Computed example of a mutant assay.
Amino acid sequence: MSTYLLNKFLFTVDRDPELVERYREDPTGTVAWWETEQANRILNCHDGESSTWLRFDDRERAALAGHDYPALFELGAHPFLTLTLFIAMFERDYDEPLGFQKEYAQRLSHFSLPYPDIAT
Rank of each mutant, 00 (worst) to 15 (best):
Y69M: 03
L72M: 10
E18T: 11
N7L: 04
W34S: 10
T30S: 06
R41A: 08
N44M: 08
E18F: 07
F111E: 07
H78M: 04
D95W: 06
Q38Y: 11
T52G: 08
D57H: 08
Y4E: 13
P114C: 09
S109T: 02
D16M: 02
E49L: 15
E103L: 13
R41E: 07
D14N: 14
W33H: 13
G99W: 01
N44D: 10
E21Q: 14
D26R: 14
L6V: 05
W33Y: 15
A63E: 04
T52C: 09
Q106A: 15
L19M: 15
T12V: 08
E91V: 01
Q101A: 11
F56W: 05
L83C: 04
H67S: 01
I118V: 12
R55I: 00
P70K: 01
T120S: 10
T84Y: 12
T84L: 06
A105Q: 12
W53N: 11
E91D: 12
H46C: 08
F100C: 08
L43C: 11
G76D: 06
P79R: 04
N7Y: 01
Y115L: 13
T84R: 13
K102Y: 08
A63I: 03
R24A: 09
E91W: 00
R15W: 07
A65R: 02
S112D: 12
H67K: 06
F90L: 00
N44Q: 11
L83S: 11
T120D: 14
A119E: 13
H78P: 06
R107A: 07
S50T: 12
H110G: 10
T82W: 00
T12E: 15
H67T: 03
M1L: 11
R59W: 01
A88Y: 08
R24T: 06
N7A: 04
A62P: 07
G66E: 00
T3R: 15
A62L: 03
L113H: 14
F111I: 00
P97T: 01
E103M: 05
R92G: 12
D68K: 05
R15P: 02
L113A: 15
E91H: 01
V31H: 07
P70I: 01
G99E: 06
L5H: 10
D117M: 05
D26V: 05
E25M: 11
Q101L: 10
R15M: 09
E25I: 00
E37I: 03
H110I: 00
E18V: 12
P114R: 11
L98A: 12
K8M: 02
W33C: 11
E74L: 10
R24P: 09
R22K: 14
